[in-house]
Design a protein around this nucleic acid. Structure first.
Lengths: 335, 335
DNA sequence: AGGCCTCCTGCAAAGGTTTGCAGCAGACGT
DNA sequence: ACGTCTGCTGCAAACCTTTGCAGGAGGCCT
């Protein structure tokens, strides 16, 4: 196996010095075009591929980046990962993926473990404290997604704006008793969402019951179904689509219909939301774009370190929201 | 940034030779317990972490593995990736993820690119020719998932068995005109599925219309809806759940109801299948287990290279399958 | 006392590549 | 004819570890 053809063998086969072979690949303009093509031919024939570990050892650049996510099985992440991976490959970079399982301690440990092996790390919705992140950044270049840390490049999706639109949409449909299903307490977007939703509800003259924190999963949403049903709430905004879908599922098990009895809005616009019934009304976040931009920020030369990019979100109205029940009833039964 | 404390500085701080520091980490039993703990203390204080690239350079082992998948956004893969990543981390390995976008050429190129950076590669449902894979394996250790190549370790899920059960389930419900929605032509499981379904249908005395190849996506399934509706088929087995869900969606857009008019069975049992309505009847494949076993095969010492593990599948009956329409009609309208 | 063995540590080579420096040949200007 | 400059190539050190070998100290046996 491991035949491992090295620069040395190419050099011998070609009758040149190893440094010439090296330059053929890493600084082609320094070598005579004719020599260069001869070297390339030899390399091709021998199946030579530069050893990235050796290269990394001397240049200090690995041509690898890492992506640290809470849970790759959460459908929010794959499109982001995919886009990031494509962007990385465009620049001849490879990407490590690491799962934290929503655990800040694992997260920190993974940053350490990966630090020496990558030129930079993208932290996707990290749950660590700001202080920890600030300490970690001395070890390795960092970019965050959906998290603002002072002085650190970031790309964040404007969930606050999305939350405002979602609340306005619900109140516009006549809903006055609203609820917010929050997500994990460590998530930065969770705090932003909570703040924005509270303000928006107040501005619209609606009440807002905040329920959380919840695990950002289907069952995390479903677990709140009974509480929602009992509270007389008619409009719900959930931390993400998965929770929203879980909630709808939980409600229907209780005989509460969406959107007839309760309207539900999610966040993220995962592909799944178009396939469940009713189709989910949601705040679409440009996750793929975020992934791409994050690696650009990581890999592009820094004109402005600490640059933070905010991405607009969009309210996509589908079938999980409808007029508030008392209005609907008034229209049909004039009670 | 990059302070990069090396073995040398630890050695100096500790008053020992670098080799002693090295051994403290890579062969602790060779160093005096007292010295060892002194070295560990120094290393800890200085924040030393072994440089894996340098280590890889000399040992030839990178402590990395790679996972090559067709499309990480396909919900079939994330649970597998997650399990593989966990299994790898248990052995102090990290994992590269690479997306091929269903393109065999990209796949091959990625194997080359990753070969020098990993101790082994897991190919998840590869689309390359056997000959290509056989050539590639001289470059790097390989394990395949859902693909059998002579002499190569593999873990495959027994879709043939699943297909037989699915067909039997459908015929048991009275369906006689069946269809099979196949997947990508390069996929090994696709061929296995086709063969098994054809045989099973014949054995059960049902007709089987084979429609494909299709892209293994939601729209790939939806695109066949009209054809299915027109063909008078009442039972369908799809290459995977995503296609099955797409088909159901497409059928309902045509006014064809599942399972009243047509019964649909998927394969994979992705989480999504429990959330769509009707809940999907499907052949459950143990994807997470497959991921774990694949990295075990890759990393465990070889008692039997070329070992191929077959994993049982399970038919999970939910709400997308029901009695054949003529039977249902006969029961209610005694026509 | 001598020999041998065990336990630990130091020495130095090796792994594949990059890169600053130096050298060489030829071109060009004067 | 000489000097300078440019374009290309070779030399060798360096990056950080691991590891086979050797050597030293001390213990134990005969």
């Amino acid at each position: 196996m491991r035949v491992a053809v090295t620069i040395r063998e190419v050099a011998r086969a070609c009758g040149v010095h190893i440094s010439t072979v090296s330059r053929t690949f890493s600084a082609p303009h320094l070598v005579n075009p004719e020599t260069r093509s001869r070297v390339l031919a030899c390399a091709q024939a021998l199946g030579y591929r530069p050893n990235r570990a050796a290269r990394a050892l001397i240049t200090g650049r690995t041509h690898n980046i890492g992506l640290i996510v809470a849970d790759i099985a959460n459908p929010f992440f794959p499109p982001m990962i995919k886009a990031a991976e494509a962007a990385a490959r465009d620049r001849d970079y490879h990407v490590f993926i690491a799962n934290t399982n929503e655990d800040p301690a694992v997260e920190e440990e993974l940053v350490h473990a990966l630090a020496k092996q990558v030129d930079g790390l993208v932290l996707c919705s990290p749950r660590m404290d700001d202080a920890v992140i600030t300490r970690l950044r001395r070890e390795v270049r960092l970019v965050t997604i959906n998290r603002r840390v002072a002085g650190l490049p970031a790309v964040v999706m404007d969930v606050a704006q999305g939350a405002r639109r979602a609340i306005a949409h619900l109140t516009g449909l006549g809903h006055r008793a609203l609820a917010l299903l929050t997500g994990p307490s460590g998530a930065w977007t969770n705090a932003a969402l909570r703040r924005a939703a509270t303000l928006a509800a107040r501005a619209e003259g609606a009440s807002l019951t905040v329920l959380g924190p919840n695990p950002p999963t289907e069952s995390g949403g479903a677990a709140r179904a009974e509480q929602i049903a009992r509270a007389g709430v008619t409009g719900v905004l959930a931390y993400n689509d998965v929770m929203a879908i879980g909630l709808i599922d939980g409600l229907s098990a209780l005989g509460v219909q969406v959107p007839r009895d309760v309207s539900v809005v999610g966040i993220d616009d995962i592909a799944l939301g178009r396939l469940t019934r009713p189709k989910l009304t949601t705040v679409a976040t440009p996750t793929a774009r975020a992934g791409r931009i994050a690696v650009d920020l990581l890999l592009a030369p820094d004109d402005d370190p600490g640059r933070q990019v905010t991405l607009d979100t969009d309210l996509v109205i589908r079938d999980s929201t409808g007029p508030a029940p008392h209005l609907a009833r008034a229209a049909t039964t004039d009670r």
